[in-house]
Design a protein around this nucleic acid. Sequence first.
DNA 1: CATAGGATCGCCT
DNA 2: GGCGATCCTATGT
Length: 208
Amino acid sequence: MDSEKKRGRLPEDWEVLPASFYEQEDVVKLARDLIGKILVTCFDGIITAGRISETEAYEGVTDRACHAWNGRRSVRTEVMYASGGTAYVYLCYGIHHLFNVVTNKKDTPHAILIRGLEPLLGIEHMLARTGKPKLTPTFTSGPGNVSKALGIHTRHTGQSLINTPEIFIVSDGTTYPQAQIKATPRIGVDYAGEDAALLYRFVVQFGN
DNA sequence: CATAGGATCGCCT
DNA sequence: GGCGATCCTATGT
């Protein structure tokens, strides 16, 4: 299988996350668990990968900050109702392609926004995509920057993260102590009323 | 059809 | 800390 060949070029201890991972019901726990996992893209044979350092959970129809709040459906958000392990990519502020992982079962529109990475593979390709001369501490910090560096585009929305060779997430066994993962309110969701205060953003803390 | 606003970023002061 | 870029999306008439 083509996808197996391409994934076979990755380190042997990188295990692709299965559907059962994404189909778990607790999106907040999943957002925390994605910290330390590795997001990989392979477009036109170019492999780029980074370790996830920041995430945000969006808890479906009950979450005012979520695009699927109150059961909303639209052409853009329909993919959130797919089964866990599907990519949800949308354009923000007319410029930024924001990459989300759909979680839970079909028809339960949970998603996790990937907000930050630590670059691991294909850094020269990431620099080329972003037009930056060299790595900086904020190079893949912020959801728009993550997608730009990994080449993720709104055209990829709806893709499976399980059965395609282009976008997937792997574990290499890395975990962080709970104390090293900080929970905070989500960014840019002031419109969400009380839900803006939920501690649904997770950030790994380095060096302290 | 018209319109307002957005799960952001980078540059400016 | 402030602001402009930039255009799609959702909503309302």
